[in-house]
C-alpha cells in the first residue's frame, strides 16, 4: 500500500508517495533522488545512512519513510550553506584527506555536524563516543579526527 508522506527535507516542504514498508533510506535515495545518503549494511551497523530527524541523528535504514510524516529531515545534500560554499566540516575533510572511497563520509559528516553543534570543543574521547556508530573501512579514522578538530577550531574562530 502507498501513502503520501508530507515532510520537510533540507528545509523544503516535500511530499513523497511511498510504500508503507519502505525505509526512509530507500525513499530518500530512490523516490526523492537524494543519493548522498549511503546504504552500507541496511541493518543499523555502519552509520553510512545517518540523517538528522528533527535534529537528532538516526539510521535512515532503520526508520520507515511513513514515520517521517510531519518531521524535518536533514541529509548530506543540505549540509552545504550555499551553492558555492562548503560547510567547514566538508572543507576540513577535503583538506585533511579524511575521505578515501567516500562511502562513510556523508554519514560521518552528519554525525560530526551534530557533535559540533552540541559540543563545539570535543575531546578525542568525545569524538570517539560520538562516532562509534559510524564505520570507515579506509582511513583508519586518524584523518577524520584531525578534520573534525580542525573544523571545530575554525568554527570557533568564525564565531568570535
Amino acid at each position: 500500500m502507498k501513502r503520501i508522506v508530507e515532510l520537510t527535507i533540507n528545509g523544503e516542504p516535500r511530499d513523497m508517495a511511498v510504500e508503507t514498508c519502505r525505509s526512509l533510506l530507500d525513499a530518500l535515495r530512490d523516490d526523492v533522488g537524494l543519493t548522498g545518503t549511503k546504504k552500507g549494511c541496511d541493518v543499523g551497523d555502519c552509520g553510512a545512512c545517518t540523517v538528522l530527524v528533527d535534529g537528532e541523528p538516526v539510521n535512515a535504514c532503520l526508520m520507515l519513510a511513513v514515520e517521517a510524516e510531519g518531521r524535518s529531515v536533514e541529509t548530506i545534500e543540505g549540509l552545504q550553506p550555499g551553492v558555492d560554499t562548503l560547510h567547514p566540516l566538508q572543507d576540513a575533510f577535503m583538506r585533511h584527506g579524511a575521505s578515501q572511497c567516500g562511502f562513510c563520509t556523508p554519514g560521518i559528516l552528519m554525525m560530526a555536524k551534530k557533535l559540533l553543534d552540541d559540543n563545539p570543543r570535543p575531546t578525542d574521547e568525545d569524538i570517539r563516543f560520538g562516532l562509534s556508530g559510524n564505520i570507515c573501512r579506509c582511513t583508519g579514522y586518524t584523518k577524520i579526527f584531525d578534520a573534525i578538530k580542525s573544523a571545530a577550531r575554525e568554527m570557533e574562530a568564525a564565531r568570535s
Binding site: G44, G47, E56, P57, V58, M63, S132, G133
Partner: peptide, 9 residues
C-alpha cells in the same frame, strides 16, 4: 547499547 543513532530510536 548500540550507537547514538540506534539509541535515538
Amino acid at each position: 547499547l548500540g550507537s547514538i543513532q540506534v539509541r535515538n530510536r
